[in-house]
Design a binder for these strands. Structure first.
Lengths: 149, 149
DNA sequence: ACGCTTTCTTGACTGGTTCCAGATTCTCCG
DNA sequence: CGGAGAATCTGGAACCAGTCAAGAAAGCGT
């Protein structure tokens, strides 16, 4: 967990001005990976007091386009942010509770980057989402068969 | 492109009642792969006249859960539907114009299905989205360098 | 054709996200 | 250090895809 000084350094390194909300948002994203905007807004307000949701949305977009955070949106989920950038990792998403966990590439560095037929597209990234049940939810379905959670 | 009779057969085979809206939606999804809900609604209204959007949403959900169509939602895009089901294929998405094309699995049958560390998740599907530029958009950026499309 | 069940229509509503205009704050440069 | 300029924050309203609910209509099996 980076210190405030680290976070400020990150911001300056990305040519972004250092402001209270930005540091707080960056810190929140580092603290709780895969958090949605509402959680981040809550965390920021806990540390700073009242902050407009607009500021958080704006900061998140700035951080995303600066490459300091990454935005992921699995189907049926709101936007979620994480601070793990640079490494090409993927995610497992629980169909039942929506929990997300990080997964490193299975095969070498860029497993599926080479599509069989790219249709002339200039591909620069392969994003993989694994769908399944998290330990807790798959355990539940073992016990109570009827639980259509 | 299946005939109306084929579509009706598909519906009955899935234990779904055959209604005008359902046949029209199914036909629209077969006609234009990766269409969003609005396009489908438009296509249905062209062939049937006024149809409520609610009906289309409802039909799309019924068809999806019956396995007759598949729903995909790349980040930053609305829900899109396609009739290619059963085969485990993936998609290339253009960052610029949002165009989508089908891609077959690169390595064997289930390339990335085996995550390096599944965190105890019971994984049943790996969804791959390739990001890049479609032929048209990458061509455009070759010519006009300033076009920050 | 009848009646039960499912499906379609109508209309309103939600929740996440974005847009806007103005006030504030920060950084740069003299 | 002080002013100019630009970026940022605030607060409110708008937007859109998708959802909920109740009643009317249509499909299916007999």
């Amino acid at each position: 967990m980076p210190t405030t000084a680290d976070l400020e350094h990150l911001l300056r390194g990305a040519a972004l001005r250092v402001t209270r909300p930005r540091v707080a948002v960056l810190s929140a994203v580092h603290d709780r990976p895969h958090a949605d905007t509402a959680s981040i807004l809550g965390a920021v307000r806990e540390s700073l007091g009242e902050v407009s949701h607009q500021a958080v949305y704006d900061v998140l977009r700035a951080l995303t386009s600066a490459g300091l955070v990454r935005c992921i949106q699995p189907s049926g989920s709101v936007a979620r942010y994480e601070a793990r950038v640079g490494d090409n990792h993927h995610h497992v998403v629980c169909r039942s509770c929506g929990a997300i966990a990080d997964v490193d590439c299975a095969v070498g560095a860029t497993p599926c980057l080479t599509a069989s037929d790219d249709h002339g597209f200039a591909i620069d990234e392969a994003e993989v989402v694994y769908w399944g049940l998290c330990p807790a939810c798959s355990h539940l379905s073992d016990h109570g068969r009827k639980s259509g959670v």
